[in-house]
Simulated scan of single mutants.
Amino acid sequence: MIMKRNLLHIVLAVGLGMALAGCAVYPAVQVAGGAMTGYDAVVFADANLPKESVEGGQIQCDSDRMLERRLRERLRLGGVHTVSAHVINGHAYLVGQTDSRAQADQALGTARTLEGVRLITCKFYPRLTVREAQSDAALLRTVSQKLAATKRLENADLRIEVIRGTAILIGSTSDHSQKTAALAIAGEVWGVRDVVDYIAVAPSAQAGAGTSRVASN
């Protein structure tokens, strides 16, 4: 009788472990927005993946950098060379060009299986022409320089992508005034057609942490 009870406990434990593992591998997927540039923006969250570090502070920054590096490496190894990856507080942003829906799904799948990523936002565009790519590169330099030269953006962690004249701002600011300023500055650059806001405002308790970083990729 005791052996039967122990066997039942083992079976239940194994079943529970398989169920929890299934939750981690297959997070819920939500499709949001309607991009006019090829593919819809896709956002999906996996609420079951545990956070490996506390929110904010040096520990979170180190974790984000590690995840970002691993994600970029996996994308390149998978042959996805035209999609950039950024990670802010465990939130992965995939932005770039894709040749097909299959390639877009491959990029999503790569990020989806990376342990530690808890949220993914994607914005994909069709492949650019050489002239479009050159124009975007020039705009990227201008936007990056203007943001980097703005003293109001101290303690802000911003990354900039420019695709088809659209400036995509990714990162975090210490308050809403910094976020508003960054979006306004990018929108005022001649040649920028639109600005996409992927900027998160950090909690007030963390407003004074960190140093200013404006990066382009």
Rank of each mutant, 00 (worst) to 15 (best):
K151M: 12
D194G: 05
V195D: 06
H81D: 15
S172M: 09
R5N: 14
L75E: 02
Y93K: 06
P203K: 02
A92Y: 00
E55N: 14
K179T: 05
A41G: 13
V196G: 14
G38N: 03
Y26C: 08
L7P: 04
V43H: 07
A133R: 07
R101Y: 14
R131V: 13
V192S: 04
D194M: 08
A200Y: 09
C61L: 14
L158D: 02
S172F: 06
Q58H: 11
S216M: 10
A24H: 11
G57L: 06
Y39N: 08
E154D: 11
L94N: 00
Q60N: 10
D99P: 04
T110P: 10
R164D: 10
E154K: 09
G171T: 00
R76N: 09
L94M: 00
S212H: 09
A148F: 03
I160V: 13
Q58S: 13
H86F: 15
V214I: 15
V14F: 01
R69A: 15
S172P: 05
L20H: 01
A207C: 07
F44M: 06
S100I: 05
V54K: 05
Q145W: 15
L119C: 00
Q58V: 11
M1H: 06
A107G: 12
G171L: 00
L8H: 04
N48P: 06
I10R: 00
S135R: 06
V54Q: 03
G15M: 01
A138C: 12
G165C: 01
H9C: 15
H176I: 07
I2Y: 14
G90V: 03
L7G: 07
L114G: 04
Q60M: 11
R76I: 13
T211N: 13
N89D: 08
K123G: 04
A13V: 03
V162T: 11
V117L: 04
E55T: 14
W190V: 07
V80R: 02
G191M: 04
A137V: 05
W190Q: 10
E115Q: 02
A28G: 12
T166Q: 06
K4E: 08
T173C: 09
A133Y: 08
V189P: 02
D136F: 07
L75T: 05
D105Q: 09
L139T: 05
A181H: 01
V143H: 00
A102R: 11
N155R: 05
T173N: 07
T173S: 08
E73T: 08
R112V: 05
L94T: 00
G171I: 01
L139N: 02
L140C: 14
S172H: 06
S135W: 07
N155C: 05
P27N: 08
R141E: 15
L71R: 00
K123E: 07
R74L: 01
A32Q: 11
G208F: 10
H81W: 15
M1F: 07
V83D: 12
